[in-house]
Amino acid sequence: MRLYQGEIYIENVKEFLKKLPDGCVLVNADYVVDIESLGFAVNKALKSWQEGKRISRSLSMEILLHISATRQINRAVKIGVGEGENRVIVVDLNDCSELLRKHGFREGQVLQMDEEKISRLKEFYEIADEELDMVGEEKLGMLVRERMALFAASK
């Protein structure tokens, strides 16, 4: 598994996603607290997949479900790509980097934390202000991983 960051412009999401092999997942960087949390979720998804305890029909969707810590596909796709310019973290299980470059992917740092992103993550992962105040913003990744672990354990 390889995780890398960058930007890509997508004109038609459905057509673009059809070209990607299963196991090549682009995650909206605005919903990724840190690489450690992303790797944690991907490993949980791979374990579920290998043990036959999967939720979805595709490995890519299984990964998105674990990253988003939900069984709801419509909620999980919110953390995927959209039309236009996308800042993404790529989960690459099938060496799709060359294919992505052919479609205009530019590798580079896109993970950054600001108040808007913290607010978005708190809302998406249903983290209460009191919970974050108790542990501090530097532990936001831990709270997100906790949601992911609870999701994986509840299947």
Results as ranks from 00 to 15, higher is better:
S68C: 09
K78S: 10
H66L: 08
S68G: 14
R75E: 13
K122W: 06
L100R: 11
V32H: 00
E126R: 15
E130L: 14
R71F: 12
V42P: 10
C24M: 04
A45K: 02
E98P: 01
A29D: 08
N86S: 04
P21S: 02
L38S: 01
D34W: 03
M148C: 14
S60G: 05
R75Y: 09
L100Y: 12
V81I: 14
R101A: 12
F40H: 15
L46M: 12
G80C: 09
G39N: 12
E138W: 14
A153G: 10
I35F: 01
V32Y: 01
N43W: 05
L93D: 07
F124D: 01
R2S: 09
Q50L: 15
D129A: 11
E146H: 15
E62D: 04
L65N: 06
N43A: 10
K102Q: 13
L100E: 13
E146G: 12
E146K: 15
R57C: 03
K19W: 00
I127W: 05
F40P: 04
E7P: 00
W49V: 04
M142D: 15
M1K: 11
G136A: 15
V33K: 04
E7A: 11
I67R: 09
K139I: 11
Y125I: 06
Y4M: 02
C96N: 11
N74Q: 06
D114S: 02
M142R: 15
V88Q: 07
C96H: 07
S119V: 03
M113A: 01
